[in-house]
Design a binder for these strands. Structure first.
Lengths: 242, 242
DNA sequence: TGTACATCAGTGAACGCGCGTTCACTGATGTAC
DNA sequence: TGTACATCAGTGAACGCGCGTTCACTGATGTAC
């Protein structure tokens, strides 16, 4: 969360000072991201960022009121990077090839995670800023959900993704935030919200297990296993080929 | 990993000194566990453990050569607690009620996680001791897998859990460690290894998402959602009722 | 266009903190003969 | 059973570290009149 101080200091944009200021903020984030990638969250300190920039540590307080504020900025960036790589992958497929879009998006997520393990961990590992995500991360975090949701929606419109749940164990309206979900996946049936959330959980569960070493001894080729998982999920989601 | 030093110091068991020594080790772990539960991993320091025990910090080095060694001990304990609560839940069901055993085990895992969030995080959150799990954790970590595997095996023997995979995308033998898996789930078809691993991934993915706040805004009643997820998984695993 | 003033990026020293780990030591408890 | 010696739990001081954050400051850059 940006402190009032920081917001105050931002001033009007466009002026030379504001431009320089934004450039400096970007430079700081860039260095912080590099250090994060090298040593992980716990090895990321304001002092080291300052050192790398040939600044005195207190200078950073002109830009970030607190270490957590810098971390939050990195989290937002990470969500955005992940979101945009997912969006690009989706856009690279034929619009009516739902299975292709689904697998491409999921693979983009996993590729991003493997290429930026520490940024993935920053987002999906143990939370560090308390258990409540800062509100400004929400919009960025929703981008991946939106991509997957849209694929669903499109498949639904073409007559796929219409399987009802096998049985009535509890009413979906009682345990899901259907209003929120319907805005992310408009037109998708409430029953399919369950499957979409399960698919989502499965993808991120898979990546976390893989990256955190919990598949050691059981999965020896995660690439192939992932393909298989995506195929099975597509089957249950009713968006597979043919 | 226990240092050679520690192993050397352990001496014969049964002697008064060895008894006192083991008691002290347990006392240290107990205090460490309490502090872990209160403040999480990052708030767990040797110095504070020592303070709580009215000892000088260097005294702990008689028992643990390093902070990581203490952490490893806590990890092993956590896996064992989780494993035994899972085993107990399974044993409390009728032996041929596979769906009951499945849901009871899964719910026991989730209950344990929610009751001991920091211990869950220690095991399934971001790894802290490097990406290779210390070898002595492996046996304890396998207990949960064994419970789930046994349910599968029993179901299989009674004629359930026999669905073949829907299609041949890659050979299971190429991406799974079938030898290891067959020892955990004897008699289960290789195709079902995939489903078992997916179910496993789904359960832990669900719990992590829930605990780390990623269901905020989409799932409002995690208990009910979890029931639904277990039901759907049982369906795909072919161990549901009737 | 020039001058007086306000803004603000960056400095440097300091505060206060807690941490893991080492090391030479004391003194009680156990063991061997 | 008693004595000489070995073991080892716990002490206390110290080393060396890096961290986040505050604060009074300098001096360059911008702004208002």
């Amino acid at each position: 969360m940006l402190s009032e101080c920081t917001i105050f200091l931002m001033g009007k944009s466009g002026t030379p000072r504001a431009v320089a200021r934004n450039a400096q903020i970007e430079a700081i984030k860039g260095v912080a991201r590099r250090l994060l990638a090298e040593k992980g969250v716990s090895g990321l300190s304001l002092r080291e960022v300052a050192r790398e920039m040939d600044l005195v540590s207190s200078a950073l307080y002109r830009y970030f009121a607190t270490r957590d504020e810098l971390l939050t900025a990195l989290i937002v960036d990470a969500y955005d990077e992940l979101g945009s790589s997912c969006e690009i992958a989706d856009a690279g497929q034929r619009h009516d090839d739902y299975y292709g879009r689904w697998t491409a998006s999921a693979k983009a997520i996993r590729s991003w995670a493997k290429a930026q393990p520490h940024e993935y961990t920053l987002i999906f590992g143990t939370p560090i800023l308390g258990y409540e995500a800062p509100p400004e991360t929400v919009k960025s975090a929703a981008r991946v959900a939106h991509v997957l949701g849209t694929i669903f929606h499109d498949a639904r419109e073409s007559g796929k993704a219409v399987k009802p749940l096998v049985d009535g164990i509890g009413d979906v309206n009682d345990f899901l935030e259907v209003e929120t979900l319907s805005s992310v996946m408009p037109g998708v049936s409430t029953d399919d919200y369950v499957r979409a959330l399960m698919a989502w959980t499965q993808i991120f569960g898979f990546i976390s297990f893989e990256m955190f070493g919990h598949y050691e001894g059981s999965v020896k080729n995660a690439d192939m296993m992932f393909d298989r998982v995506l195929y099975e999920l597509a089957q249950s989601l009713d968006i597979s080929h043919s």
